[in-house]
Amino acid sequence: MTFPPGDSSSPRAAGTSPEDATAIPARMLLWVDQVGGFLVCLRDEVTIGATNGGPEEVDIPLIANLSRRHATIHRQGETYSISAHAPSFLGDRAIDHEAWLSSNKDLRLGGVGFRFRQPTVLSATAVLDSTTSHRIAGGAEGIVLMHELCLLGPAADHHIVCRHWNDPIILFRRKDQLRCKSPGPLFVDGELVEGDAALTHGTIVTGTDARFRVEYC
């Protein structure tokens, strides 16, 4: 997988973007002003491994000394498990084949460390916080494993914490679409949103003090 640099504003240029621009992608990048870049994985099965810089990337490509497919995280309902394809540890225990993940567990894949968290009980969406200095290919600085919804906002139990925001913004699935809404005023590509609005590749979402761009990949 590559996150096409430069002109990635068209859906076709966005690598594995779906044919239908409004369909839910397998992954997307959220470039949040003053906060960071976040890789949001929307599938129930997410592979983690070393980046190869080519088109056949895993879902979470890391710039690290890992196997190409080092591990896979599965979501079954509201629970998560991990399958190890190469030496991996959950806490201090090696993962022989598969292990259940629970919130605030430390995960180590080779020399790469993560903390698995489910910040709020309202959603099964999880985040992987890096505990080592390894980077994600493409410039993302955080990972979200999105279930039904993803909360961006100032509170500690939001999936993407944006401390300077006043109102949260909620990304959620409805039928085959990814949509957004907020208790405060919200603009999608400059248009005021009444209720909620669909997201597509290249959408720029703006709030009173928030701005981020959605980039399917």
Binding site: P5, D7, S8, W31, D33, Q34, G37, R211, F212
Partner: peptide, 23 residues
């Protein structure tokens, strides 16, 4: 806080802005 350049802007040849960091 509003920033002058939107994501994906290319004010300089060879560089694409992804997000604002700070003002």
């Amino acid at each position: 806080m509003k920033f002058a350049f939107a994501p994906e802007s290319t004010p300089l040849d060879g560089y694409t802005i992804k997000r604002a960091i700070h003002r």
